[in-house]
Design a protein around this nucleic acid. Structure first.
Lengths: 231, 231
DNA sequence: AAAAAAATCGACGTGGTGTAGATTTTGAAG
DNA sequence: CTTCAAAATCTACACCACGTCGATTTTTTT
């Protein structure tokens, strides 16, 4: 499964990560831009984004099956082999792309969380509209995320975490709407969770259908949340 | 993409489907046992079931990624190449397996549909419990069906049809519960549809979690249906 | 018992993946 | 402006799983 340790074979240096490519990149991208200036915008950082852009563009026209490493690399103007300098494998590309998009939703949820003064129903409506916007703007990536989340743990986890974050916010809203704040299967948390998945599914279905009737998806979703919250 | 027509190359017979393997099987399995007797239980029919059993067993222990054609064939005691006599490709095996299981749910929905006399809430509760039972008994196949449905049209369609059938039944129940029978996004049909997907998701999530807390899933699902139906 | 149909096998070609090592490009220090 | 190490890129390779083909064996029918 894992490559042989390939111990300190090369001369000198020795204990540096000899070949592990992506890890090197990964660590770099985590660096913070200190005082200085734009802190060396490495050429590779652009390529990395270009690869994600290429992948996203590919998804617009072809399905997940057709999304080949070759195509992504070519789309970014490099050879297949070079891609592996940036990402360990195909899944990591997808994961990075999904992550880039999910950040939006998390921000969405976070900003909604602030508002503890408006009536719960109103907050809920704004939240659902926010979700609609994200699906509208990034439907391809969102769809891919859902489709892949079952198959690739990294993506699945990212997706779950996002929904969980949203559910936590909505739990508070449900509580404020008068739903008992128990921990059981009928408490606010459980209901919020289930309803968040309903929201996800409804928009996913809308995104899959050729009509892409997002307003209808929103209306239905809101109607259900409303009824659950006691009109 | 498609194999060359390979016209009537062989001597005699000529216009029979020379090599197309699965189609031959397919047509056979569709045959009806007329008066006669048990009408020749072909050896291959058993193998076909054995293959599905093997696939199902494989799914218990390994993920979808590890579910290789080689493994399925070996599990049924034949060689990889022989499998293609029964199924055109890997997806068809999965599709057949899923189909075999989904028949159960459709029957479930159909039987629920009969009861137009009991109070709607009661009917709904029985329906949800029915769904729970299916997930309990066939969780592996159900999970696989959901996981694969995005990637393989055949499975996706089968799954959608099943949910649709269920939704049609539940639409009536919602109507009887007093929800306006409009065609719009807030009518009974749309709500039933969305709620059926919520049900699916909730049980799917339960099946994925290590605790497999189906009672909780049922409780949450019922609670939401209840609230939507106006308590 | 002979012939036809059903079932099985092993070998092949293909396409996509990930890896290795050699090679060029980049850019910072002297 | 040279030098040199790190970054980035390429080509070639080995691998694995898939699906196909033609030959062969087994089962069923006549």
């Amino acid at each position: 499964m894992n490559p042989p340790p390939d111990g300190g074979k090369g001369p000198g240096k020795a204990l540096a990560p000899v070949h592990r490519k992506y890890s090197a990149r990964k660590s770099r991208s985590g660096e913070i831009t200190v005082g200085r200036r734009s802190a060396a915008p490495r050429k590779g950082d652009l390529r990395e984004q270009a690869l994600l852009d290429a992948a996203e563009a590919l998804l617009e026209h072809t399905g997940l099956e057709e999304l080949t490493v070759e195509a992504i690399a070519k789309g970014a103007g490099i050879s297949r082999g070079s891609l592996y300098f940036y990402f360990g494998n195909k899944q990591e590309v997808l994961a990075a792309l999904v992550e880039r998009t999910l950040r939006t939703i998390r921000a969405e949820a976070a900003s909604t969380a602030q508002d503890a003064t408006s009536p719960p129903v109103e907050v809920m409506e704004r939240a659902v509209h926010g979700v609609e916007r994200v699906w509208r703007e990034h439907d391809t990536v969102m769809r891919a995320a859902v489709d892949y989340s079952a198959l690739h743990p990294v993506i699945g986890t990212a997706w779950n975490d996002t929904v969980d974050a949203f559910a936590r916010t909505m739990t508070q809203v449900l509580t404020r709407a008068g739903i008992p704040d128990e921990s059981g299967p009928e408490g606010a948390a459980a209901l919020a969770h289930a309803l968040c998945w309903l929201t996800e599914r409804t928009f996913y279905r809308a995104a899959c259908s050729p009509e892409k009737d997002y307003p209808a998806a929103t209306a239905t979703t809101v109607a259900i949340w409303r009824r659950v919250m006691g009109n």
